[in-house]
Design a protein around this nucleic acid. Structure first.
Lengths: 220, 220
DNA sequence: TCAATTTTGGATTACTCAGTCCAAAACCCA
DNA sequence: TGGGTTTTGGACTGAGTAATCCAAAATTGA
């Protein structure tokens, strides 16, 4: 019998099994934190890509042994996909954290677009792991494409809600189609990510973020 | 002595050497067209990326033998960089071909942004080789980053000229900063490329292209 | 036809990779 | 303490890689 330590770490399966006295003997527990190891792998994959990250690189970044990795995460492909899932989840969380209680939805949008002016050059150079994944493996790994489609739908829905909120506060004209505008903002966001990764100056990135918001406001 | 067949194919070195009777003997000429082989390699690299393209894949795509490839192009890395150069040159040429004699610079800009609505899904899924290169190797291959910076400067300058032309025809307000607007359009173009690669619908891509131009026109 | 030279592609090399195996260490409960 | 179980990491495996070697084929001018 094998155990999925992902669930174990969230406390579902293990608790019930222990309560039912399923285990006669408790064996040596894992010496590492699954989530920490995953985060380490995520960094390596983000920085080097899938093929670029060797198992050795991954083990060093995860600070665990070879067999521990295979036992815990399956194979390299499964580990990569789990990292990508994790990245999207964190990224999404970052977005929602910024929604907060800002009374100006347009300022929130600007905050999204201007994020590259607040990041270090090194962070900008790493780009977005989701975009890196699509441009490299979108054609060859169906899971990557599926994940991208899913994420795009969720992000655009969230952006559309922000734009509708901006229309309620009067910051944007009601005649603007919220769905189209959200697609526009999303494309701008992706474009800025690539421009930042390609080494565009902080000034240029700031200008484009400002210009995009100003353009939205000017639309009738 | 070795010969750079790139220049040979353009007829500079070989002619002078022949005229000077440098060769006592003419040996067997190459049986393949260098540019055709390069184009084949470009397709493979574009579709599969650098690591994803094995030498076998490349040879099949180039329709030449192993040793011919190494003799003619150096090694895999050199071949990739030459393909990337070639891609950027072709891409740039495509842009300038569309400048033509259209009396509306704004229509030309719209033509750029709407290119993804005219391409097949397969073409959109391949994305832009330049973006694919930056997102995958921008950090690890300095030549890739340098090439991207160079290309960005040239494309933005060209876009700025278009925007200034649109201001002359009265399509855009003079108060708009041409440099900022060109950076904005470039970011939109990159964003659309990624959105298209990620599987965005033709309708969404068309909407964003239209919206971007309308937003430009609305700016004061 | 022949000598000189180059192209060509199959065989080979040296290396890296992802993934498996296994024995020893670590840990728990009784 | 000691039996039972799991973790752990070094050694290993087999496949696949980029790049080199080399001998045969091809082509030229004389």
């Amino acid at each position: 019998m094998t155990f999925d330590y992902h669930y174990v770490s969230h406390g579902f399966i293990l608790d019930s099994l222990v309560q039912n006295n399923y285990f006669r003997f408790m064996a040596r527990p894992k010496e590492f934190d699954r989530d920490a190891a995953l985060a380490g792998a995520l960094q390596v994959f983000w920085a080097k890509g899938y093929e670029g990250a060797s198992t050795g690189d991954l083990l060093k970044g995860m600070k665990i042994g070879r067999q521990s990795m295979y036992d815990t995460f399956g194979d390299k492909q499964a580990l990569y996909l789990e990292c990508l899932h994790c990245y999207h989840k964190l990224d999404n969380k970052n977005f929602f954290d910024h929604l907060s209680d800002n009374p100006s939805p347009l300022e929130v949008l600007h905050g999204f677009l201007a994020i590259f002016t607040r990041r270090s050059e090194a962070e900008n150079a790493m780009g977005c792991m989701g975009i890196n994944a699509i441009t490299a493996y979108g054609q060859t790994k169906p899971e990557v494409k599926a994940l991208a489609l899913n994420t795009a739908a969720r992000v655009e829905a969230m952006l559309a809600r922000l734009i509708e909120a901006a229309q309620k506060t009067g910051e944007l004209a009601n005649s603007v189609d919220a769905d189209v505008a959200s697609s526009f903002v999303y494309a701008a966001l992706q474009g800025l990510t690539v421009r930042a990764q390609a080494g565009a100056s902080r000034g240029e990135l700031a200008d484009v973020a400002d210009f995009t918001i100003k353009a939205l406001k000017a639309m009738r």
